[in-house]
């Protein structure tokens, strides 16, 4: 601030010396480059500003309530004017101070400050407008709550997934442990066989073991199925599958193919010729062929109905 003030002072003195506003600012110490950039003349005619102020100023001895103007005790200083929150807080504090001081002074001068509750008058914003504002606030709250709920749900889902993976890992672990047990058992057996008999017998035993395990698994699966459905209950399903087909591609089944469009089996030259789009011919062909009779007109139909 002091820097800019000194600059302004310097400018003022320059202007005073030269007495014209159109003169280019010649800052000798700044060199030719600065002269080029600073072509704009800055005017700050402080005596004139003071004179103008005195010219229009209200008298000082008037009661405060004439102007109701308060100057803050602390200058608003905001480091970064783009910082919305801090800036608005500074403005708020300035206004709040003025409000508090103003109330004091008005009470001192015997005025009324606050509006009584039963004083109704036209407001600056209409009731409809205030209703809109209220609605907007409500909507905002609702949306905040909804988003919070969604967030909680998401967290829950994430946690659920964790549980799922844990379960999966546990299952895998137990499976691996079971397999380990089997291999160790095999090894034990192998050791026994080696000591006792020839190795061909072991192979058979192993194969049988494997078979048993595999078939056992399959059997288990079958058993599971049979628990829910018997051949009798599946008969309907089987019939349906036979009728409608089962599996296979379902898309484009009804669309034309090269073969279907080349198929001329359903074409009849005679019939094709008989139904031409020419209206006269069409009618004639129809009557000649002895086709269905045309529906009589409405009046005729009604008359016929009346006779009945």
């Amino acid at each position: 601030m002091s820097d800019s003030e000194s600059e302004q002072e310097q400018r003022l003195t320059l202007e005073d010396l030269e007495g014209s506003d159109t003169e280019m600012l010649s800052n000798d110490e700044d060199g030719p480059i600065d002269i080029l950039t600073e072509q704009r003349v800055t005017i700050n005619n402080e005596p004139a500003l003071k004179r103008l102020r005195e010219q229009i100023a209200l008298p000082t001895n008037i009661p405060w309530s004439e102007t109701q103007s308060v100057t803050s005790t602390q200058a608003v200083s905001v480091a970064d004017p783009d910082d919305d929150l801090n800036r608005e807080v500074a403005f708020y504090n300035q206004a709040l101070e003025a409000a508090v001081l103003g109330r004091e002074r008005i009470r001192k001068e015997g005025g009324v400050f606050e509006r009584p509750g039963d004083y109704f008058a036209e407001m600056i914003k209409s009731d409809e407008h205030m209703a809109k504002i209220r609605q907007r606030l409500l909507d905002e709250n609702a949306s905040i709550q909804a988003s919070e709920r969604a967030k909680a749900q998401r967290d829950l889902k994430k946690f659920g997934k964790k549980v799922q993976t844990e379960k999966r890992l546990e299952r895998e672990k137990s499976k691996a442990a079971a397999l380990d047990k089997i291999t160790s058992l095999k090894k034990k057996r192998q050791g026994n066989d080696n000591t006792a008999n020839a190795d061909d017998e072991f192979d058979v035993a192993l194969a049988s073991d494997d078979e048993q395990r595999g078939s056992g698994g399959a059997k288990n699966g079958n058993n599971k199925r049979s628990a829910s459905s018997t051949p009798g209950s599946r008969s309907k399903r089987l019939k349906k599958d036979q009728k409608f087909g089962f599996g296979g591609k379902k898309r484009n089944a009804k669309s034309n193919t090269a073969e279907s469009s080349a198929d001329m089996s359903g074409f009849n030259v005679k019939r094709n010729k008989s139904t031409s789009f020419k209206s006269g011919g069409h009618k004639a062909a129809r009557t000649a062929a002895g086709g269905a009779k045309k529906r009589p007109g409405k009046a005729r139909r009604q008359n016929a109905g009346g006779r009945k």
């Binding site: 103007s69 608003v76 300035q94």
Partner: peptide, 21 residues
């Protein structure tokens, strides 16, 4: 919201005293 036509308090920053303009 406020009354239409109520007299307001004018609050000025202290910086308004800093220079003649």
């Amino acid at each position: 919201n406020c009354l239409k036509g109520s007299r307001h308090i004018l609050s000025f920053d202290k910086n308004f005293e800093s220079s003649p303009h």
